[in-house]
């Protein structure tokens, strides 16, 4: 994926110079290993700032919401699906966008890598599918595929689904079992399920980084912030924390692309995708729906079809 960057810069530069877009949304190099910062580029000379590697796990569709300019946006598979969702939900217009598609080979799981090493990781570099991790007194080479974010290792839409430009040939899609982890929970008895989620959320500090990193969570006032009436308590009571998480997951039903930005953003490494993934699985199994694949189809929650499953209604 490292080779992409020249092409990204070249396309971006062209788009700005030809005045096809007012700005490019992409990533610039971060100040820490495994971190890049989303950025806005407006002039051809700043194009050099743009980078692309396996640390671009933040979903850039999040930065499109309600913008009025003409925008060039760099989009990996999941970003492109969230762009489609944004367009369907009238958060941006297709005509405003030039989508620079990036066939993706997955993003590195920074939480996992950090906890794999006792000392501090000072440098992470990648080459030919290998990741080299360096610290003060250690150096290790790992296969990138072994340290992917979990959502990337089960991703089946690595190639962008809509694009105007493409920075490389398409990559081969993976043939994987997407829901092994969800099925494990489905198989638990109720009490165990309850405890599983209690434990999952036990360190949540309600910073809302998961919500704010998610392109779907664009409501002007989130239900947890609503004060007239107030739906949810605001302390760190565990029921209130759980209410936030499971209701947010419902609001993402049929929309979530499992991009993993929420999990990546969490400072304490909570996998809150275990809520959204169940709904995503249900949407797929019951409605044959995967979010953000097509601009012409309406999502299952705002359509009715006679063949929709209804055996839960007695």
């Amino acid at each position: 994926m490292l080779g992409y960057i020249d092409k990204i810069r070249q396309i971006s530069k062209g788009l700005i110079e030809d005045k096809k877009v007012d700005m490019i949304i992409g990533f610039k190099k971060g100040t820490m290993p495994m971190m890049n910062e989303p950025c806005l580029v407006k002039s051809p000379k700043d194009v050099e700032k743009l980078v692309w590697d396996s640390n671009c796990g933040i979903n850039l569709a999040n930065y499109l919401t309600d913008r009025k300019e003409r925008i060039g946006i760099i989009a990996k598979g999941c970003d492109s699906r969230n762009i489609v969702t944004h367009i369907i939900e009238n958060k941006i217009k297709r005509e405003q966008l030039v989508i620079i598609g990036v066939p993706c080979t997955g993003m590195i799981d920074k939480h996992r890598l950090t906890s794999m090493f006792e000392g501090e990781i000072e440098q992470v570099t990648e080459q030919n599918g290998n990741i080299t991790i360096k610290g003060e007194d250690f150096e290790e080479i790992l296969k990138k595929n072994d340290v992917l974010q979990q959502n990337c290792s089960v991703c089946i839409h690595r190639n962008p689904v809509v694009y105007d430009e493409l920075v490389s040939d398409l990559v081969e899609e993976q043939d994987v079992d997407r829901y092994e982890d969800v099925r494990k929970i489905e198989a638990m008895p109720s009490e165990k399920k309850w405890n599983y989620f209690d434990d999952l959320l036990s360190t949540c500090i309600r910073c809302y980084a998961c919500r704010n990193a998610c392109p779907l969570c664009y409501c002007p006032t989130c239900f947890v912030d609503e004060s007239r009436p107030q739906w949810v308590g605001k302390s760190d009571d565990s029921i209130d924390i759980r209410t936030f998480h499971f209701l947010r997951a419902y609001h993402c039903a049929g929309r979530c692309t499992d991009c993993g930005a929420c999990e990546r953003a969490c400072p304490v490494g909570i996998n809150m995708r275990m809520f959204t993934r169940k709904l995503e699985k249900d949407c797929f199994e019951q409605y044959g729906w995967e979010a953000g694949l097509s601009l012409d189809e309406r999502p299952p929650l705002d359509t009715y079809k006679p063949e929709d499953p209804d055996d839960f209604i007695k």
């Binding site: 929970i185 489905e186 109720s190 009490e191 165990k192 399920k193 309850w194 405890n195 599983y196 989620f197 759980r242 499971f246 809520f275 169940k278 839960f312 209604i313 007695k314």
Partner: peptide
């Protein structure tokens, strides 16, 4: 809800 640990049978849907 059931996925999260609420026992099956506590939540019902009906069309009347």
């Amino acid at each position: 809800m059931e996925h999260m640990g609420i026992e099956p049978g506590r939540i019902h849907f009906s069309w009347v």
